[in-house]
């Protein structure tokens, strides 16, 4: 008995919504960043779920490939994002998003 793909999709939607909520209401820069990673992960789950469902082989490979690339992009994004946080912290001694209210410093 296999799990219907719809269940995975609903789970992914739920994780995405949780991530979106976190990104909207948290004030700690790191936590917001983590919420975004959570949304990315939910999107990956959707892609893998769809890739199981399609009968055509090339389409199924595409689904997994996109996730592969998304993981690589996530790595690049995390490196740059965290470097930004370090740079901001050096200047302002906080990464509280409410306090980062200057356009330049």
């Amino acid at each position: 008995m296999t799990v219907p793909v719809a269940w995975y999709l609903v789970l992914a939607a739920l994780l995405f919504a949780i991530g979106a909520f976190g990104a909207l209401f948290r004030r700690n820069g790191i936590t917001v960043f983590l919420s975004i990673e959570l949304m990315l992960n939910a999107a990956n789950l959707t892609l893998v779920a769809y890739s199981r469902e399609i009968a055509e082989l090339s389409a199924r490979i595409t689904g997994q490939m996109v996730v592969f690339f998304a993981l690589a992009v996530a790595a690049a994004e995390a490196a740059v994002g965290l470097a930004l946080f370090i740079a901001i912290f050096r200047q302002r001694e906080t990464i509280d998003l409410n306090r980062l209210n200057l356009m330049r410093w």
């Binding site: 995975y8 983590l34 990673e37 997994q64 996730v67 993981l71 996530a74 995390a78 490196a79």
Partner: peptide, 25 residues
């Protein structure tokens, strides 16, 4: 879902590297 390669990659890359960077920072 029949994607064990992505599962291993997810742990290796995300849990093993990216989130360690987060903790590090």
């Amino acid at each position: 879902l029949g994607a064990p390669f992505l599962a291993a990659l997810q742990i290796l890359l995300y849990a093993g590297a990216i989130l360690v960077l987060f903790l590090f920072v």
